[in-house]
Amino acid sequence: MSNNAIPRDFVKNVLQNGVGRYVCQLKRITFRFCKSHGGSRHMRDFIENNLLEFTQKNPGVVCYLQPRRHRPPSVVAEFLNGRREVMLLSGKEVPEICKWVEHMRTRSGVQIVNMIQNNHTETPSTQGIWHPFMFRDSEMAATEFPSKKFSQIQVTGKTATDLVLEEQLKVSSSESSDSHIEGK
């Protein structure tokens, strides 16, 4: 899909549609056909047999019929967001025309594009984006590297040597207090 003619964009949709109630985004649909040419034969069949049912089911959609002499059949869909889509239907049989008309009725009107990326936001973080000095100890800015303070592993608890030295301190202090009492 490396065709530059196909637009590429981030994913978009009419997300508010259907939150309260569903609003059909198709505003107007125009069927363009020739009254005499063989290419518009299936389109004429569609108009004769299926169009009335479509209009009765969708009172919110305006249907126009536009006969054009010796031109291929097409359908023009206009949406609430102001976009207008033309689809050529020459050689398409009645069931397929029904399918494309249904496709236009259920569309959001947003242009079909190649997606650049699945992830996108229109509302970036208010806290600001990450940078290498975020969450870094600000003292590092004034430190000359290599520094022993930021190199040492942070240990919690005591080693066996620490415990032995503590015991020795306790013993020596109690001895000194004893000797103090004796001296009294």
Partner: peptide, 11 residues
């Protein structure tokens, strides 16, 4: 150099 990696064990 703008930062230091901590060592894995006590020296």
């Amino acid at each position: 150099v703008s930062g230091q990696i901590r060592q894995v064990q006590v020296v």
